[in-house]
Amino acid sequence: MGTTNIKIKDFLNGDKNMTRLLIVFAAVFALCSLTKGSMFLSTSNFQSMGKQFPEFGLLSIGMALALFTGGIDLSIVYIATLSSVIIARLLPLMVTETATDGTAYMMVIVCFILAIAVGIICGMLNGFIISKVGIPPILATLGTQALFQGFAIVITGGSTISGFPIQLSTMVNKLVFGIPVTVIVFIICAIVVGFILARTTLGRQLRMLGTNPKATEYTGLNNVKLTMTSYMMSGILASIAGIIMIGRFNSAKADYGASYTMQAILIAVMGGIDPNGGKGNIQGVAIAIIIIQMVSSWLNMFENVSNFYRQIIWGGLLIFILIFNYVINVREKKAAMKK
């Protein structure tokens, strides 16, 4: 028994942010269950939550990756939109009316692969102009944000595209043992990225890059390659989010998901990623995603609460969390000084 006690203590001390997040998670869950019990605790609510969070969840992990390396990716939402409008244009061309079910599914998968390729290219472009050309991440991704959104507008002609083969939405909206397939995709992505950051050499190098890029350079690491890998991973996650988006709405438009940029930063910061780089983990981000989704669904249950109040809450929450983390940090430093 003694050893387990120590382990729990280590766990709690080692990752205070995680403990706090779990407490917030429990508190939010309790609040939602107490105030809207019958609606909140229903299976259909959990299923609809499961359908909603993977797309912004993946974007948040992508944003977390960029913040982790000391950068930021403002273009991430538009990588997702660009991927989805490319699917929207290609798929109807590839699947003709006479195609069999099997070929249609094949073509949908080919489109998905192409969409991910788009994500890779966009991410590499970000990484290239940030690390090789030397443009600060804020500006570089501000530029590519306009560029990607611009291409999405040109491709769609500024309007909504719909009318895809049925196989697309069937595939994205499938339930496996009652769990939406998108949730499974999200979990796999979160585990892979979490594993890379926590357990691999690449993850450690990215952490060092986020803490002190000069030091990594003098250690002999290839900063250009590291930055490009990081933004490429964000790009892949974004394009998967784009695939989920087009499947869920069954349509594509150049400004879908425009509000996700702020939300993705909020979630990453809430999950314990330091916007100055080098700190945090994906477990924290994953819990933050679920907390935000619970609050969002809970707000939906009040009919007279306008959608716009969510904007106020997210904005206020972001600033509150920044200040909260700051205060905690100062306190911890003081405590450490005393010791």
Binding site: I265, P275, F308, Q311, I312, G315, G316, L318, I319
Partner: peptide, 18 residues
Amino acid sequence: LIVTLGTSSLCFGIMQGV
């Protein structure tokens, strides 16, 4: 950048909601 993204969302939210 991060702070003003937050306050920007707050302002638009207040205008559109309140």
